[in-house]
Amino acid sequence: MIKQLSVFIENKEGRLKKAIDILSMANINIRALSIADTSKFGILRLIVQDLSKAKKILEENNFLVKETDVLAVEIPDEPTGLNKILNMLDKSKINLEYLYAFVGSKNNQAIVIIRVENIEEGLKALNNGDANILSQKDIETF
């Protein structure tokens, strides 16, 4: 289980860019990001290396930021890798809220970030399926 930063993005021009700019100016390394977008607002979801620093700098710039628990799983290096992971959750009837993937810098493994309704249950299902679940430390050194 790892921490993700969720940032509220108002539906106004330039707000998303502003958030990213602030982080890059503070030398925050963004490992992964995804954007949930509606016609009225967006939620920017970030996996960063220095979580507390990123949160602080965004808040200082008036952004609304929240820490969210998500699951980070390494995708097995085979064509049906992601399917395998999703099947584990499906079998245990775990409700998936969203997911996004990125590629690790160490040896090009694909990593998927998963948000489920019940994180404890999700964790259990993945453990039972023998998935390679990453810790906060793993993410920071990946």
Partner: peptide, 9 residues
């Protein structure tokens, strides 16, 4: 507000 903000759309 942070009280109202959620990660979920």
């Amino acid at each position: 507000t942070s009280e109202l903000f959620s990660d979920e759309v």
